[in-house]
């Protein structure tokens, strides 16, 4: 699935990374707890979260993710967005709730990937 498909499905607006919407991504994870995201490393490329602070970007960066989808109408502050831009991440903002966003994307074929304790 392309990031632009995620954007359309979740009726999201793109906050940064407009030039990378054609990028293909294969799996995603969703959580408001960054420690849980960090606990389940694999190749998830998309992070769906309702948490907005710079550490969301740092977590995505540590995990080599390409795209963050903020749900529940949450929008990151300028500092968070600047960091995301610097890291070359795509940031989307959707008004959907997390459950709905996940359900839609899952049904379109964006799955959770393998959970791996490495």
């Amino acid at each position: 699935m392309k990031i632009i498909d995620i954007m359309n499905a979740t009726e999201a607006e793109v906050l940064t990374g407009e030039d990378q919407l054609e990028l293909e991504v294969y799996s995603a994870c969703a959580s408001d707890m960054m420690s849980d995201v960090l606990a389940f490393v694999k190749e998830q490329a998309v992070l769906i979260t309702g948490l907005v602070n710079p550490q969301v970007v740092r977590t995505a960066e540590m995990m080599d993710m390409q795209c963050i989808v903020f749900v529940r109408g949450k929008k990151p502050d300028a500092e968070t967005l600047t960091l995301a831009k610097k890291k070359g991440l795509v940031v989307l903002a959707s008004k959907l709730r997390m459950y709905t966003a996940c359900g839609l994307l899952f049904s379109m074929g964006l799955h959770g990937g393998t959970i791996n304790a490495e």
Binding site: S35, A39, L51
Partner: peptide, 10 residues
């Protein structure tokens, strides 16, 4: 926890 940490996974 509100900041997304403190889940006891660190």
């Amino acid at each position: 926890r509100m900041l997304g940490f403190g889940a006891g996974m660190g």
